[in-house]
Design a protein around this nucleic acid. Structure first.
Lengths: 161, 161
DNA sequence: ACCAAAATCACCCGAAAGAATGAGTCCTGA
DNA sequence: TCAGGACTCATTCTTTCGGGTGATTTTGGT
């Protein structure tokens, strides 16, 4: 029964003992009032009132003792360094600022993958010479002198992942 | 107390009305019991017990209605995704797994900066030939055939930033 | 003191990269 | 229609890269 469930919260024997003593005192008071009732007959309403008050107080006390506390949820923000999604955002601004062409970017991407000029040419369906032309222009615009430098700079400028 | 908990759902004036009705019924029951008491004298203890039970319930109900609810704070941690510091952590495990030497790593770092073999040699105070030897061994261990491929692979393996 | 790994250097050769120059095609905007 | 940009391709030449081989010296650990 749910009524007795909260009794489990009463810790230790001392509290149980205290509760028993309180009940004994209560019964004693009741008996005393009962004796007084024989003498003063008109005190019946007072007696009933006393009972009501006493047990109302007992009810209140019980409720306060046993009432289940309401749960209040407090959200605490905790910083968690989560594994970064490593998302690459293409730097469109820098791309236009440098005046790179689409084809030059294609060549650059191929270079970053470790492809040779010949392989880049095959991927883009153009000759090696064309790739070389693009790469030369690319180097000029990036102000570098080799493909490795181009890759390094492009990575820093967030033109390639 | 779970037994009386539904009483809390009664809201506004209906609650007051209900309280009045409950009191009326209570008084009626008391009056009825009082009448019965004249006939059955020995029912006095039952009467007292009923009073006690009723007012205990009333007290509990009152307490539940009026008492300030005890709150229990539950802390819920909420993950806040903080901007990643983009910090580079050297993959020591992969480094040893591949059996790379210190010098080979030095050469690799130079390559990643876009330096030529000659420039790497100057930085490391060795001849170009030495750099070429290191790079050759490096390529074998990384299973690649060019410096750009080496850079690409090393980046994926988190050997270089 | 010895061994193994690492580091150093040298030489050759072919392939690739890069610089420089010229030129043809296509497309778009003035 | 005309200029300019992007794309394409070619040629020549120089430099660099990368593979292969061999050798000597340093270093670190047993």
């Amino acid at each position: 029964m749910a009524f007795f469930k909260p009794f489990r919260f009463i810790a230790g024997n001392r509290e149980t003992l205290l509760y028993g003593v309180a009940l004994a005192v209560l019964l004693f008071v009741l008996k005393w009032l009962e004796l007084r009732l024989v003498i003063v007959n008109h005190a019946f309403e007072i007696y009933i009132g006393a009972i009501a008050v006493l047990f109302t107080g007992l009810g209140i006390w019980l409720a306060l003792q046993l009432a289940r506390p309401r749960v209040q949820t407090v959200v605490v923000e905790k910083e968690v360094y989560v594994g970064e999604p490593n998302e690459f955002v293409f730097n469109e601004t820098e791309f236009r600022r440098l005046g790179l062409s689409r084809r030059e970017l294609d060549v650059l991407l191929g270079m970053a993958e470790g492809l040779s000029n010949h392989e880049i040419g095959e991927r883009l369906f153009v000759s090696v010479n064309t790739v070389k032309t693009h790469s030369s222009n690319l180097f000029s615009k990036l102000d570098v002198r080799s493909r490795t430098q181009a890759i390094d700079r492009a990575k820093r400028l967030r033109l390639i992942p």
